[in-house]
């Protein structure tokens, strides 16, 4: 495929301790994910897929082994360094959306930007743009409880992409949604992967959801048991602009901002 690796796991093991008993979750796992891949992690409950996702996203630390994301060894970062890295480069999508109930849709999206040095106006504009990308224009001032499950998940996706991260992680993003909403969310993720070149790692139970990914990994008892790379679907149109070092998403944001400034 020729793309540089985005994520490299070397001999990663993870075990939990509960009352002196060690519970191994992952053992000596090796994995490489290329930039722009849309990876689905599948496997039965307790197979370690969520743990793997958490390790890649820098939410948890391995017991041993190395995790390198975009040339950065996560295991060597301090807690606050890893927090900063997450805020800059990782977007999260959860099964239960996890929006802040007291904040409006646009404020929820704006939340990660509070950690940046952007001005209030820039933050607002970026949040609006992100909401437009997920198709929620005009819903900015709705509170989460005023939105449907699918809409809530879109707000969550907008929040995940608003900082323009290179990695999106999703834990059962369609688990709480009806068939149709799930399809919409998956379309959106596919679009983010193709058009905006986001590397996506998604944990799912749902084979229909996994089908949308470019690569499907099966885990069982902490081991990789199957690794299927789907034949590359139609190559993304914007690949060239990405290669020229101008991230399409940012370009898109800029265009959007200019349009809005004119309005």
């Amino acid at each position: 495929m020729g793309r540089p690796p985005a994520i490299i796991l070397r001999q990663v093991s993870k075990e939990y301790r509960r009352d002196q008993i060690r519970i191994p979750v992952l053992s000596r796992l090796d994995l490489t994910v290329a930039e722009g891949e849309f990876l689905a992690l599948m496997g039965p409950s307790g197979s370690g897929k969520t743990t793997l996702l958490n390790l890649i996203a820098g939410l948890d630390r391995p017991t041993s082994g190395e995790i390198i994301v975009h040339d950065l060894d996560l295991t060597r970062l301090s807690d606050s360094q890893i927090s900063r890295w997450r805020s800059d480069h990782v977007g999260f999508i959860f099964q239960t959306y996890n929006l802040i109930p007291v904040l409006r849709a646009d404020e929820n999206v704006e939340l990660p930007l509070l950690l940046t040095k952007l001005s209030r106006r820039e933050r607002r504009q970026r949040a609006r743009t992100a909401l437009r990308i997920v198709g929620l224009e005009g819903r900015e001032d709705h509170y989460p409880r005023q939105l449907s499950g699918g809409q809530e998940q879109r707000v969550a996706i907008a929040r995940a992409i608003v900082t323009d991260p290179y990695l999106l992680v999703a834990d059962e993003p369609t688990g709480d949604l009806d068939r149709q909403s799930a399809e919409e969310i998956l379309n959106l993720m596919e679009q983010l992967n193709r058009e905006f070149e986001k590397t996506i790692v998604m944990v799912t139970h749902d084979p229909n959801a996994a089908k949308r990914a470019t690569r499907i990994l099966h885990l069982d008892k902490g081991q990789l048991v199957d690794d299927v790379t789907r034949a590359e679907p139609s190559p993304p149109k914007v690949a060239e602009s990405a290669a020229s070092g101008d991230p399409p998403y940012v370009a898109d944001l800029d265009t959007a901002r200019r349009q809005e400034a004119r309005l």
Binding site: S83, W85, F92
Partner: peptide, 16 residues
Amino acid sequence: TREVAVLRAIGFRKPQ
């Protein structure tokens, strides 16, 4: 608790 965890995941640091 869960909400705080989300904030932390998004990148909010402990002191914040």
